[in-house]
Design a protein around this nucleic acid. Structure first.
Lengths: 120, 120
DNA sequence: AGTTCATTTGGTCAATTGGCAAACAATGAG
DNA sequence: CTCATTGTTTGCCAATTGACCAAATGAACT
């Protein structure tokens, strides 16, 4: 019996540590966006800056809740913070986040189409 | 004393029901994306379709866990499902979801820059 | 009809999330 | 200085999430 050596290039399918880390950091940013209240604030901040008290009025939740949501957006690097006197103003930092919404809308349209097809 | 009528356009700041509903449906889709395992699978499915057993091997979690993650992606309208013999194949439905990653990477680069600035 | 392989479903558990309220901090007005 | 206003942090609670295991289902092949 003879033996032979082969160098076989097998695609490494298994998720490695580097991939896992990358997915976790990416998911963290998406998670920051993935809440209705935070999404609403991001959209409003696309037009202009608002202070916490204004945003609190707009979303209609407790100010402590709004403050926490804003700190999540800040930690994700999605908004800028600027203190002016007693007030703290937030502004949109990553305008490209708004591009997400186009795709999301496309997904929703597709979903609607699917449901129509299912009925027919 | 005279009276006069004015039509005053006051920007309605408060989130109304329609806006709330819209933010909730959008957030639901982002939520489906906002998990490291699901993000990894979405990226892998960008190249080709895989069955549940393959994806299970790739992510290294219990098959029931992977199946559940896939059903979340399916319900969000992000993937297609096709049964072939004994196996169930998933494929990427909304390729525009991949565009999200460009912005996410930009956010991460900005974050890194901020940290550098903070050190200097 | 029964066996096997692939997938889904249901149950349990620990960890996380999102809400409010109360305490705390900082700024500006009187 | 004292007080009111604005925000942040902390503590607490209910609800949700993500993981596993076990059991049920489904589809193809003896």
């Amino acid at each position: 019996m003879t033996t032979e050596s082969y160098l076989v290039i097998v695609p490494n399918m298994k998720m490695n540590d580097k991939q896992r880390a990358r997915c976790e950091t990416r998911a963290a940013i998406l998670k920051a966006l993935a809440h209705p209240t935070r999404l609403f604030m991001i959209e409003e901040l696309a037009d202009k800056s608002y202070c916490v008290c204004e945003l609190t009025e707009m979303v209609g939740l407790d100010i402590s809740t709004v403050s926490k949501h804003l700190s999540i957006l800040k930690n994700a690097g999605l908004v800028n913070v600027e203190k002016k006197g007693k007030q703290v103003f937030y502004s949109l930092r990553m305008r490209c986040a708004l591009n997400f919404f186009d795709c999301v809308e496309a997904v929703l349209r597709e979903q609607a189409k699917d449901r129509m097809d299912a009925i027919q």
